[in-house]
């Protein structure tokens, strides 16, 4: 059974179609790159999967269920912005996650925070931008979720932080779960991807495994992406 499935999914904002008849499936155990230029509909798709938007048409299901309280317990989501209350410290944030998510592994989170040298009593807003992004990712990846939806996890961070983020994702995700990474920085994530979905102007252009692309096109996903999305 697919962990996430969309059928003819459409989302309109007034006259603008952010997603137009998108159909795709994400299987368990796969790391999927949701790839496309800015404004292609990646964030809209992820927001729909999290129940943060309501579809205009079509259907989206997580483990066979429409997005709601039940699916939110199964999905671990990293938005593309700083979303944690600034006044909280890491300890309070772990309390918060532990209270609401039964799959939250506090020990694992503490271990990663300690490795990062984050003082648990320091407020979120007192941390550097890079550290705040890492703390967010640590909380998200410390859950034993069925589906991880990571929206632009490496956007706007330095190369060292980028490595830390990708390493954290690969080391910590539940092997029976699926990971969807939305990004336009393909070269940086290509090494960790099993599958890719190309999105342009609200349409799915391609859904394939990384190996298939390399074998069929004789080039890397990054090179193929540049060719497909050439301006």
């Amino acid at each position: 059974m697919a962990i996430m499935e969309c059928a003819a999914l459409t989302k309109r904002f007034g006259a603008v179609k952010a997603l137009d008849g998108v159909s795709l499936a994400v299987q368990p155990g796969r790391v999927v790159g949701l790839l496309g230029p800015n404004g292609s509909g990646k964030t809209t798709l992820i927001k729909l999967a999290n129940g943060l938007l309501t579809p205009t048409g079509g259907e989206l299901k997580i483990m066979g269920m429409k997005p709601g309280s039940e699916t939110k317990a199964l999905v671990s989501y990293l938005p593309d912005k700083e979303y944690l209350p600034e006044w909280m410290n890491a300890k309070q944030l772990m309390d918060f996650y532990g209270d609401f998510y039964s799959d939250f592994d506090r020990e694992r989170a503490r271990e990663m925070l300690a490795r990062l040298g984050v003082d648990e009593k320091r407020r979120f807003k007192q941390l550097s931008k890079g550290t705040r992004e890492k703390v967010q990712l640590i909380l998200v990846m410390s859950r034993q979720a069925k589906l991880y939806l990571l929206d632009e996890p490496i956007g706007g961070v330095d190369p060292a932080t980028r490595d830390f983020i990708l390493d954290t994702i690969i080391r910590n995700y539940n092997p029976e779960a699926a990971v969807v990474i939305s990004t336009h920085l393909i070269a940086d994530v290509e090494q960790v991807l099993d599958d890719v979905i190309f999105v342009r102007e609200g349409h799915v252009l391609l859904q394939s495994t990384v190996d298939e692309i390399r074998a069929r096109e004789g080039k890397s996903v990054d090179q193929y992406f540049r060719e497909v999305f050439k301006c």
Binding site: N50, G51, L52, S69, K72, A73, Y77, Y83, F100
Partner: peptide
């Protein structure tokens, strides 16, 4: 606002 990304993705109604 931005904290809504946290609150509206909690498994609560």
């Amino acid at each position: 606002k931005d904290e809504g990304y946290l609150m509206h993705t909690l498994p609560v109604s």
